[in-house]
């Protein structure tokens, strides 16, 4: 399968943020979006996820489930973690597992996801007591509680320490190795296999 963007033009306010951008990300590949602040990384990711309707162009998944929209085949992790502070760590992960229809062996999946991001010892804690980095890891654990072929990650390493960034990179590598694809907006280099980089600043058409 592949995620295809065709001739995208996206407006935010009165400003054309992205113009004439086309790319394809194949299964097993990760695409890193780079560029200075305001280059349109978040806008592009939100467009790929279907939240923002592009002014022109099309986003589609080829070879996926035709019944589903791109968003329904994707995990979207934005700047916010989608973590409920008064639920425990395990309840947060468990909720996303059942809401996103994680399939059979729910408990195993949730445990494995928490273990991957080093949260297994905190699973009974209310999320309110977690540090910013731990909340981020809990937000990222959502990637593993239900299987979805497309990952759209916006600054996933924000407030993560080095060890956690490596765990994230490992999760992305596992995902691409098993036939998934990922689009990641980031400022920090991630140790990814088979990653291409798309610099949005270089794409910019002079006004």
């Amino acid at each position: 399968m592949q995620l295809i963007a065709e001739d995208l033009a996206i407006d935010r306010g009165a400003r054309r943020v992205i113009d004439g951008l086309s790319f394809a990300v194949k299964a097993g590949e990760a695409l890193l979006l780079t560029g200075p602040n305001g280059a349109g990384k978040t806008t592009l990711l939100r467009t790929l996820a279907g939240y923002i309707r592009p002014f022109r162009g099309l986003v589609r998944v080829e070879g996926g489930d035709d019944e589903l929209t791109v968003a329904e085949q994707a995990h979207v992790v934005g700047h916010t973690n989608a973590v409920k502070l008064s639920l425990s760590v395990a309840e947060n992960a468990g909720f996303w597992n059942s809401y996103l229809d994680g399939g059979a062996d729910a408990e195993l999946r949730v445990d494995a996801a928490l273990r991957h991001f080093g949260l297994e010892d905190l699973s009974e804690f209310p999320a309110a007591y977690l540090s910013a980095g731990q909340k981020r890891r809990l937000g990222l654990a959502r990637l593993l509680v239900a299987r979805r072929p497309v990952w759209l990650l916006d600054e996933p390493t924000a407030s993560l320490d080095t060890a956690s960034s490596e765990r994230l990179a490992a999760a992305v590598n596992d995902h691409t190795n098993s036939g998934g694809l990922a689009v990641i907006a980031t400022h920090l280099p991630l140790a990814l296999e088979r990653a291409r980089t798309l610099n949005l600043a270089a794409q910019k058409v002079p006004a």
């Binding site: 968003a71 995990h75 979207v76 934005g78 973690n81 989608a82 502070l85 996103l100 937000g139």
Partner: peptide
């Protein structure tokens, strides 16, 4: 909306 949950709910199967 504030903690981003709504964005994820919108991508769910529902």
């Amino acid at each position: 909306h504030e903690d981003g949950t709504l964005d994820v709910l919108a991508t769910g199967p529902l």
